[in-house]
Nucleic acid binder design. Structure first.
Lengths: 360, 360
DNA sequence: CATGCTGCTTGAATCCGTTCAATCACGCAA
DNA sequence: TTGCGTGATTGAACGGATTCAAGCAGCATG
């Protein structure tokens, strides 16, 4: 509990609103009015107060203000993974919209851990925030009670809650999953791998639904080989791809639940000496900024990422009735996907440098 | 100023600490003690209070708490660019360390705009935060007065302030710049481009210093061609590279001030039909996660990113006396750099698809 | 039996703004 | 002259916790 002491400490303690009032020769009520409803204060008085504020270096205390006023000027944002460019682009959209209304953003990452999520939501609840935007790592909304109880508005990001009446902004992930797999089918692939994340995440579940639907639509000819991973990042993708190929050397294409996973999957494929897309096609999801610049430019399903965040914040700030907003995804074809090849006929997978159990 | 109304609103207004006290049959002081110094409360009493809290769904009001106690449980973080993976990795380190002590993080991005920076720091000041970690977009520390005045501790991220007595965590950028250019020199390059960012950013200035030092150490043989860009992202890198090559078709290697800029630079080089690294070597800085996975795996100067953030937060939480912490960068050689070639002899640059003025 | 000590609990004062009913000043109409 | 309306200003109550001097009970000691 020690404290750095910084050098720029000027002597005076810290002006309160009453100091300003005294200096300006007005009442505290008037100072408060200057701060919050300047239009009802007479011009000369307002000037007086501004001068006093300037001279004393007065900075209003947000806690005191909020305690009385009830309403906070910040919104909380809880994402699954702070180091996923997708979420940061969303966060950027949120912040830009919030700042238009002079709000600030508290950003935290649950890392997909429900315990950590709970803890973060608890501190959010204590802050009596203006609103909370979140991508939950669980399927229930029960643990949001604490928030809604005290009037904090909730907007779901990239998640459509089962319970009616919550605001949410999502991309149609089922459509996205369908599109991705349909693209692979159209290239002639028949045995298709799907490296998916935890099904407790709605995104994963919806993309799975879409993927299966596409397979079903193709009739009995096609097959989806699903492989679960724990973490939605490159390490997860690498491990998932290793397990998938180990058990199913004959898949000719792989749909990865997001681009980071696809990145890891491609890393593994390269380590195995597989040529992309000649021997193996890979498609990702999100179309993160660098997807087009990779060793093998990644085919992906684009979400309107920034727009997603911006709309979520806008929903929070301007809408009276909670409603769901749905965006449509868009296929972006690059070179990581190509026509199905004969590789499926080879007898066994080549040497894998990353062991199949290397999930970390 | 309307408000979403979420459905999960249970009737009761919102329990205060006095409600808990009444329910538990103790005084408010005791409830407060259970919350803040549980060890001084007798076991049975503590249990009583916990039960009451549970039954009433009591959530302490952070504003009221902070108003009286003075100390906040959050730290503010201000970075230059929220969508740069480098800063997000830093933020992850910060948050992990903060959460160990039960603090939360307010994260904002100045986008390198001093005006926006000022505004964000103002709201930070109003919150009476426990501490602020920031990468400033200006060189002065004057505008931090408001913060330090009210006892908010400041730690600089990736920036070593001129003023003595501030805590800071940096990588030795001069050494990094020197290393980068020395690497290019060792490969035989003599005319070396340097796509740098605004010199108001200390990182840019320090890397410049190091780069120049390396050139000077090489004697008169080598030359550094500097090109400034406004924004430290891929778009900036693309534009900067275009301008650099337009004016200096004979450079055989380019040092980019960070990896995003390098990404843009390589994009432009590819658009020009230049082969990397045969015709042009490119080296970046930061070694972001995907640097090794790019079309041409990027040689870069690695910073201990996560560690940088973690240490900064640790400094804030545990150190009494402000001090600077300096990490050493590390060269990571990949395939985007190679021996100098004869390309410099060609008469003029090839067609550029992105115009030289495409800075946006 | 008086005294001191320890450990626990109490309750009023306090933190710093916002809010709103009450007051005031002033000009105009009756 | 009185009365009224309007616009500006005042000041006290209030929000929900923390803090701390004071009180209290119980036990050990002299």
């Amino acid at each position: 509990m020690s404290s750095l002491r910084n050098p720029v400490t000027s002597g005076h303690p810290q002006a309160r609103i009453s100091d300003v009032a005294r200096r300006a020769g007005v009442s505290v009520g008037t100072v408060s009015n200057v701060l919050n409803r300047p239009h009802i204060v007479a011009d000369p008085t307002r000037q007086l107060v501004h001068d006093a504020i300037e001279q004393l270096g007065f900075v209003p205390n947000a806690s005191a203000r909020q305690l009385r006023a009830g309403a906070s000027r910040t919104a909380g944002v809880l994402v699954l993974d702070i180091s996923n460019p997708f979420f940061m682009e969303v966060a950027r959209g949120i912040e830009d919209r919030l700042i238009e209304d002079g709000l600030t953003m508290i950003l935290s990452s649950s890392d997909g851990d429900p315990g950590r999520e709970q803890m973060i939501l608890d501190t959010f609840a204590q802050q009596r925030l203006r609103g909370v935007l979140l991508t939950p790592s669980q399927r229930t909304v029960d643990h949001l009670e604490r928030l809604t109880d005290q009037g904090t508005d909730v907007v779901f990001l990239d998640h459509r809650p089962r319970a009616k009446g919550f605001a949410s902004v999502v991309t149609d992930d089922a459509a996205g999953g369908r599109t991705a797999v349909a693209h692979l089918l159209s290239l002639g692939h028949r045995r298709i791998g799907f490296v998916n994340g935890p099904l407790s995440l709605q995104q994963c579940r919806a993309r799975q639904t879409g993927a299966r639907r596409a397979i079903r639509a193709a009739g009995g000819a096609a097959e989806l080989v699903e492989q679960q991973v724990e973490t939605l990042d490159a390490a997860g993708g690498e491990a998932g791809m290793a397990r998938l190929l180990a058990g199913n050397p004959d898949v000719t294409a792989v749909f990865c639940v997001n681009d980071l996973v696809a990145l890891g999957a491609m890393r593994h494929a390269r380590a195995c000496g597989l040529a992309l897309p000649e021997e193996l096609s890979v498609i990702g999801y999100d179309d993160v900024s660098f997807a087009g610049e990779l060793a093998v430019p990644l085919t992906s399903v684009r979400q309107p990422t920034y727009q997603l965040g911006w709309s979520a914040a806008d929903l929070l700030l301007t809408e009276a009735a909670p409603r769901p907003v749905v965006f449509q995804p868009e296929l972006v074809v690059r070179s990581s996907t190509g026509p199905a090849s004969r590789r499926g006929e080879r007898s066994e997978p080549r040497l894998s440098t990353t062991g199949g159990g290397a999930l970390e």
